[in-house]
Design a protein around this nucleic acid. Structure first.
Lengths: 195, 195
DNA sequence: CACAAATACCTATGGACATAGTTAGTGGGT
DNA sequence: ACCCACTAACTATGTCCATAGGTATTTGTG
């Protein structure tokens, strides 16, 4: 259900085509919410049918057109309503911790490799997110810069602070995952070898 | 895809009916992987068709029977193969951090309420998980006790250590979430009020 | 000008999951 | 004798999402 709101959040900044949105999903928003284009295009049409966005065909080259969507007042309303509604927490479904609980069934070298992969995975995320924080601080993030341009000066700090806040949370989580996996590696070292 | 392996992990300990499994999912495994019974029953039949488990009808009362599934060698093999295969990481999809990134659109009191709800949610989880750790340490977890009974003494420590490890990871994560939400509350306090 | 890469959009299939039911027998209490 | 909670199992619908394609146009590069 969040895809719709992620799209509305982006269209709040400026009108975009499905293709534009899909690209943004691969870079900025994609860090909190991924969506493939095969999901974006139909969702946009559904949202248009419900009056949350309106699309217009704009010329592209000589023969072609592309469809650019902009948010409607109903769409803004829907988005703000969602932003002010309590978050629904879905039940835990966590492959990594499921596996950890049964790590005794894995060969020790395999367990070690998996924990190392866990660390590497989260270190990659960490690098991406730290990069994002840097972009926020130095004003080199395209989407955020555009967003800030639409705001009065006194609200820019606010906007920037929340973006930073979101990424800081992701970073803290990734660091916790890395620390946990490291403690797992230590556990493997300390555990007596299997009989 | 993990549902299948969670089921195999449980059936590795002892044969169970779909109903039993669904109950376990609501207590112990449910903390890492939730599944409704409407998903469990069909999955068991699919697994039986593929030879991973075998079900037998056992009498229950006078007229009724129930179907108890036990794991087959093929099932054990499948489970171990999965345990030794690298974990697949799915792309981030995180409603809480998506919302945090756009918290400027929420009314300040609403934002505050949401952060408090975030803290409460994770504190509830934290309590459950700490309880689980206690059960592991004091041998009062039914599933684990049964599991340990099937193992030679020298492997019990190992089994127990990994269970603990899994829950410690969940706890660390929940604590990180709480710390993050608290920093968000502080941010709201420090931010100048909206114009 | 040819050609590759990028832009733009679309479809189809299948799995996973949420949600909301239904049916029926069992076992214990009153 | 009756009620009710529990046990046991199943079904049906719909959404979300992954995966893997497809088509056509445009734009930049050599």
């Amino acid at each position: 259900m969040s895809l719709r709101y992620a799209l509305l959040a982006l269209l709040n900044v400026e009108p975009m085509t499905g293709y534009d949105l899909h690209k943004v999903f691969e870079s900025s928003v994609g860090h909190v919410w991924y969506a493939p284009d095969s999901q974006i295009y139909p969702e946009l049409r559904k949202m248009e049918a419900q009056g949350l966005v309106r699309g217009e065909d704009i010329p592209w080259g000589k023969k072609a057109t592309k469809r650019r969507y902009h948010i409607t007042p109903a769409g803004s309303g829907e988005f703000e309503a969602w932003m002010n509604s309590p978050l629904e927490y879905s039940r835990v479904r966590d492959p990594a911790h499921l596996r950890a609980a049964y790590l005794e069934y894995a060969a020790p070298e395999s367990a070690r490799a998996q924990l190392k992969a866990h660390i590497e995975h989260h270190e990659t995320l960490l690098r991406q997110w730290n990069q994002k924080i840097l972009e926020i601080d130095t004003d080199t993030s395209t989407m955020l810069t555009r967003r800030l341009a639409t705001l009065p000066a006194d609200q820019r700090q606010r906007s920037r602070a929340f973006k930073r806040f979101a990424y800081e949370g992701l970073i803290a989580r990734a660091e916790a995952e890395i620390a946990w996996a490291n403690s797992g590696l230590r556990l493997l070292d300390d555990l007596p070898p299997e009989a």
